[in-house]
Design a protein around this nucleic acid. Structure first.
Lengths: 316, 316
DNA sequence: ATAGTCAGTGTAAGCGCTTTCAATATGCCA
DNA sequence: TGGCATATTGAAAGCGCTTACACTGACTAT
């Protein structure tokens, strides 16, 4: 009797037990499709991320999956590759799977389309992006603070010329980090020099040309704030290829504090991104059936500085 | 009309078109639960891996997801943590989701239980493990060959004393790699010395004590073959903490050739594990509806040597 | 004592598909 | 032209559940 399974209140204790016993004896397993069909709930959540196998998304997916599973809800993840068509496709696919909620980490999909999803009745959680109309469904990091902390750290170490290799500036988070950089500069009375800026990619192994460009430019600098750790990793590569040592001739700091940061030599300074917290939060938002619950409509997690060996006092 | 959707043959061209047109006009989307319920197929595949966010499983999951999605099938992934209860739990969860097939990368689950799953009618694909009764459903790497190649490489470089930090020897793959190591030793007429062996973990950041034990033991050696790249990474950590340089005083080779291997300095030599190929194959096996198709019942992918800077000629 | 409540239980109508089977239409043969 | 095989279509019976509704008693307030 379905009332027992679903923990309906109006069932006598005696009967509840009888049913439970019978279920065990018969090895009964509810058919989740029949449940879904009849109740119009699927107990599944869809998530689209940039790339399932990313250093950043791995831990995120893991946390989300774990949190959902604890509630008997399953996760269907799809890669969007930051490409408009592919993101659309992923959403379409997940929707065709009747997910109860959608967790989106998309960069190409325009705000409108996301808002429309919500209007069509899908619960939506937006990660690392802010959409005013969906304010209560957005979870993001205070990227500006992160950029500020990173830059201030370098400035405090005595560096006057701090370069910045940003992520794609068409992404909100990359822009915010950049703004934090400028804010720190301003606060320290250092003049902004556009020659110290280049725009890279957040993905692995794509930004070498840009990094090279920066280092070969006719500007001096002694420190680099990288938009994320992948960029920092490539800066490491470049430095080592050119017989420099991070933290020595050039101080470098990354962003995200990915697992590999502390394994690099010298260990990479970075800005800690609370991925786990964010994943958990996203899953909880997604599970939040009646989104009646009052949510913080301007939720921003706080990053923090992880100073290690790649950032050191200015020498030359 | 379902016959059109499912590409049934006996439909007139005219009607097929009429239906397609109507579907578009009405924005019709088939309900996947009703389909699943009526047809008893779910168009979903479950996968249990050790840890969703692992360096190894990320690319694997990604490939599997991509391959499945191209067929409109979705993937539900769950972590098993190499723990018997958790693996069971994951399987139970996936089964309750009526997956059409199960891709298993489990280490704790005994053979019997996996065989039983198959007997109960679930399509099963077993990764990185060999179960004779399920020979045609197993996809694995020739780990022994890998261990052999790694060790031979070090031996060829002139090292006489080659240590081995294995993965947990209760795992088949770890044992096979170890066997490959011994085989290479034998072939080079080098006597096996048990003092040069320690057993670590494949997971991140768990093997430092064991590594320390090896280096502090009263045996000399000039090269280490690590059971996987995570172990090699920790050897790097230990070496750097003790002011050694990999490839200099100690040659190091890992296994799996994870993405970070080529970013380490010195770049880590490793044994390439064709993760992508394996993921693709696993997905295809899982999709293989009528497993009538003759499969290779002893499929082993071949690893290959990626020699980089961490393995060098013996100096001292 | 009577009507009104309500916890507890049984019943049946779907949810939106697939699939079987019967019904009709078409084409071919002698 | 009749008869039969084959192509196409329509209709209906579920798939295994949820849920709205009707019903039974027992209990309470009048």
């Amino acid at each position: 009797m379905s009332r027992v399974i679903n923990g309906h209140k109006r069932v006598s204790e005696a009967n509840r037990e009888r049913v439970h016993k019978a279920m065990k004896e018969l090895g009964y397993r509810p058919n989740s499709f029949a449940q879904a069909l009849a109740s119009n709930r699927s107990n599944s959540v869809g998530m689209v991320v940039t790339h399932i196998s990313g250093n950043f998304f791995g831990p995120m997916l893991h946390t989300v999956e774990e949190t959902l599973r604890a509630q008997g809800v399953h996760l269907i993840a799809a890669s969007g590759y930051d490409d408009l068509e592919k993101e659309r496709d992923a959403v379409r696919f997940l929707l065709s799977r009747q997910v109860d909620a959608l967790i989106l980490h998309t960069n190409a999909l325009p705000d409108d389309e996301i808002i429309e999803l919500k209007q069509q009745g899908t619960r939506v959680v937006v990660i690392n992006r802010f959409i005013p109309e969906l304010a209560e469904d957005c979870i993001r990091l205070d990227n500006e603070l992160g950029g500020y902390l990173a830059t201030k750290h370098l400035l405090d170490l005595g560096h006057k010329k701090v370069a910045h290799i940003s992520g794609p500036l068409l992404y909100e988070d990359a822009r915010d980090r950049f703004n934090g950089y400028r804010k720190a500069l301003d606060e320290h009375g250092v003049e902004f020099d556009p020659r110290l800026i280049v725009e890279g990619s957040f993905m692995e192994d794509r930004s070498m040309p840009v990094i090279e460009k920066l280092f070969k430019r006719d500007v001096e600098f002694s420190a680099v704030f990288c938009g994320n750790d992948n960029l920092a990793l490539q800066v490491y590569d470049w430095l080592s290829q050119n017989n420099y040592i991070p933290g020595d001739q050039y101080s470098v700091i990354g962003f995200d504090d990915m697992a590999f940061a502390r394994h690099l030599r010298p260990r990479l300074s970075s800005i800690d991104f609370p991925i786990i917290t964010m994943g958990k939060l996203a899953a909880e938002y997604a599970l939040d059936k009646d989104s009646t619950r009052q949510r913080n409509s301007n939720l921003r997690l706080e990053p923090s500085l992880m100073a290690r060996d790649s950032s050191a006092n200015r020498r030359c």
